[in-house]
């Protein structure tokens, strides 16, 4: 007999535990976690740039020393890994933007392709500007 609450009072439910390795079971979960871990490398590179600015502020000798330190094997490897994760962040962020925002122009929905292309255009423009700014 089922009480009016709808739930038999002697019901024994099995509640599965979520494994700590849940994110290794599916490719989409794994890519998601890698994307989230890019945050570590974003933070690392901000720290690196602040140290760079500090060195520049300390004079030319400090600037050269910093460049030498940055060329050392471990720092280089770290920055290569950081670049990989930064690019993962950029690609996934650009791909998700059309889903996160419904952009309408003159009443019609802008197709995802245009939004993604627009972002990559922005990336190229910003990159060109930075390159010009520091190498002119």
């Amino acid at each position: 007999m089922i009480p009016s609450s709808g739930m038999p009072t002697d019901l024994r439910l099995y509640r599965p535990r979520v494994s700590t390795w849940w994110w290794t079971r599916k490719r989409s979960y794994f890519v998601f976690v890698m994307r989230e871990l890019s945050s570590i490398f974003v933070a690392w590179f901000v720290v690196y740039l602040v140290l760079f600015v500090y060195a520049v502020g300390q004079g030319e000798a400090a600037y050269r020393r910093f460049l030498d330190w940055a060329a050392s094997p471990w720092v280089t490897v770290l920055n290569v890994v950081a670049l990989v994760f930064v690019l993962l962040h950029t690609v996934t962020w650009f791909n998700l933007t059309p889903q996160a925002m419904a952009v309408r122009v003159a009443g019609r929905r802008v197709p995802s392709f245009h939004i993604i292309a627009g972002q990559y255009t922005g990336l190229v423009v910003v990159s060109a500007f930075v390159l010009w700014l520091v190498t002119r």
Binding site: S28, F32, A100
Partner: peptide, 8 residues
């Protein structure tokens, strides 16, 4: 956290 699996 915008995993996106729900949509998939």
């Amino acid at each position: 956290t915008f995993v996106g699996e729900c949509t998939r």
